[in-house]
Computed example of a mutant assay.
Amino acid sequence: QLPVRFCYFADSFRQSDIQKGVRRVYNQAGLEFIGSSNAMMSDVEILVILINILNGLNLGDYKIGLGHVEFIGGLCDWFKLNLKDREYIRRTIAIKNFVALENFLNKKNKDKAEIFMKLIQPESNIEKICSLVSKIKEQKVIKSFNYLKEIYDILEKLDCRGYLITDFSIIRDFDYYTGLLFEVYCPNVTDILGSGGRYDGLIKKFGLDIPATGFALDIDLAHKAIEKMDLRERLKILLKCQDNKNNLELIRIARKLRHSDIIVELSYGDISRLEDFAREKDCDLLVEVEPDLENVKITDLNKNMKKVKKVSEFLKEFKNEKRN
């Protein structure tokens, strides 16, 4: 039953134009969130999980660069470029040849070229990007940036904004990516530690038109970057708002639970036979946040017991267990 979340550990194989000295086999860990009708919140959840993983790995001063598939295309529309020029732009950005890119754009329009080059540089202050975008009256640019800005604002409320930068130079070779793109950068390694994004166009190629988002981490690079890892068996909770609203509060509660080493799966929509659904997900508890956001209804799926607690008491209980 949709939506579903998958995680995996597997080898992936990639073809490279460079024949020598480049890895072809990557040992990676990934997470996929498939079938959610709420694109914004599923993208946010994926990023929050990624941040929790990276923090749990004790990676230190990492950054997640956020981009969007439509942004560069919108800038090309702004320049009124033909297909050949658009492909040149895409290839040049992909190989990070910014000198050639700037020379090319200057021949088209120097004023626009200056803005273009500033927009594709990694930037931690999204307000600077906002100021630059305000000079562009191209809907594709505005819409894609506003989507990213909303993600920024939500993650700021979840105390995650400090991990983020904008990086519109992120380019994918695959045509099934449809929205958010992101990459993980860590000072301990020179290559990209992980990447992900929204790929609503992929599953459609196999006959089922459903949205999806996810990410993958390079395990070998992660081993080089981490200092220690703490693995143990943990409790699993299905967390849901009874009125299907207040999704931001739902994610906030989930983050606090995850800080206590609890596995949390979120549910945003209506699901029939919710307890059966939670059992199918191998959850130990079903926790429903009541509309007043003050109380939670807790169903122990192993003991078939139900009770209601204050949210603060519920969270404190697991915080104390971790301390002990």
Rank of each mutant, 00 (worst) to 15 (best):
M40D: 10
Q15H: 10
I49G: 04
E45G: 09
K128P: 07
G74T: 12
P122Q: 01
E114L: 12
A94H: 12
K80F: 03
D17F: 14
I129K: 00
I126D: 01
I72W: 03
A29L: 14
Q19D: 10
E127C: 12
I115K: 02
I126G: 02
I95G: 02
W78I: 07
I120K: 03
T92Y: 02
N52T: 08
N38D: 04
F71W: 03
K112Y: 09
G60E: 00
L47Y: 09
D85H: 08
I115M: 02
L47H: 04
V99R: 10
G65S: 14
K108T: 05
C130I: 12
L31E: 08
F33I: 14
G73I: 00
E123D: 11
I89W: 02
G67P: 03
R90P: 07
F6I: 13
S124N: 02
G21I: 04
I126V: 09
G56Q: 06
N82C: 12
K118T: 15
V48S: 15
K118H: 15
F98R: 09
D11Y: 11
V44R: 01
R86G: 08
D11R: 06
L81E: 02
G56S: 05
L47P: 07
E32I: 05
I64K: 07
N103Y: 06
L31S: 14
N82R: 04
N82F: 06
